[in-house]
Amino acid sequence: MTFVDDVLQGRAVIDDLEEYGEAWDSSVVKEYHDYLGLLWPEYAMWVEEGQVVLEYVIKARQERLDLRSYLARNKDESPTTRELWSLVERYAEEWREINS
């Protein structure tokens, strides 16, 4: 299970992220973004923008979408979704690699 899975199942909250980071064992799960349950561009966005990205990743996963797809559908919903969509656009190449 990943951090995102645990949040979705109610076993964790976003504020528990630091504890998950402390428990990460790179000999078991090499990539930190995989351990968290994030696609690489989602992870890059989280590093850049912080907790708000995780909140939107959780919303996206509740709808069985990746963050890019969720934001594409909801980009005009609020200033935050528009701002995050702009960030998605900056990571366009990474999203293309995932979808190919």
Rank of each mutant, 00 (worst) to 15 (best):
M1Q: 11
T2Q: 05
T2E: 05
T2P: 04
F3T: 07
F3H: 03
F3M: 04
V4Y: 04
V4H: 03
D5P: 04
D5H: 15
D5F: 15
D5G: 04
D6Q: 15
D6K: 15
D6R: 14
V7S: 07
V7I: 15
L8Y: 12
Q9T: 15
G10D: 02
G10N: 01
G10A: 05
R11Y: 12
R11S: 14
R11F: 11
R11L: 13
A12V: 03
A12C: 07
V13P: 00
I14G: 01
D15F: 05
D15P: 00
D16Q: 03
L17P: 00
L17D: 01
L17K: 12
E18C: 01
E18V: 09
E18G: 09
E19Q: 14
E19R: 15
Y20L: 04
G21Y: 11
G21H: 08
G21D: 05
G21Q: 10
E22A: 13
E22F: 06
E22R: 15
A23F: 06
A23S: 14
W24M: 02
D25V: 07
S26A: 10
S26M: 11
V29L: 08
K30D: 14
E31H: 12
Y32Q: 05
Y32A: 05
H33I: 00
D34N: 14
L36G: 07
L36W: 03
G37C: 06
G37E: 00
G37M: 02
L38P: 02
L38M: 06
L39T: 00
L39H: 11
P41W: 02
P41C: 06
P41V: 01
Y43A: 02
A44N: 11
A44E: 12
A44I: 00
M45H: 04
V47G: 01
V47T: 06
E48A: 14
E49M: 10
G50S: 03
G50V: 01
V53A: 02
V53M: 01
V53T: 05
L54E: 04
L54S: 01
L54H: 07
E55N: 04
E55P: 02
Y56S: 08
Y56G: 02
I58D: 03
K59T: 04
A60F: 08
R61V: 13
Q62R: 15
Q62G: 06
Q62W: 02
Q62D: 08
E63R: 15
R64M: 09
D66K: 03
D66M: 11
S69E: 14
Y70P: 03
Y70L: 04
A72G: 11
R73G: 12
R73A: 13
D76Y: 12
E77S: 15
E77M: 12
S78I: 08
P79S: 13
P79I: 13
T80E: 11
T80H: 05
T80C: 01
T80M: 13
T81W: 06
T81Q: 10
E83G: 10
L84E: 03
L84P: 05
L84W: 02
L84M: 08
W85E: 03
W85F: 12
S86Q: 14
S86N: 13
L87Q: 06
V88P: 04
V88T: 08
E89L: 09
E89R: 09
R90L: 08
R90P: 00
R90I: 00
Y91E: 02
A92S: 11
A92H: 06
E93N: 11
E94K: 12
W95A: 03
W95I: 04
W95Y: 10
E97H: 08
N99P: 02
N99V: 08
N99D: 09
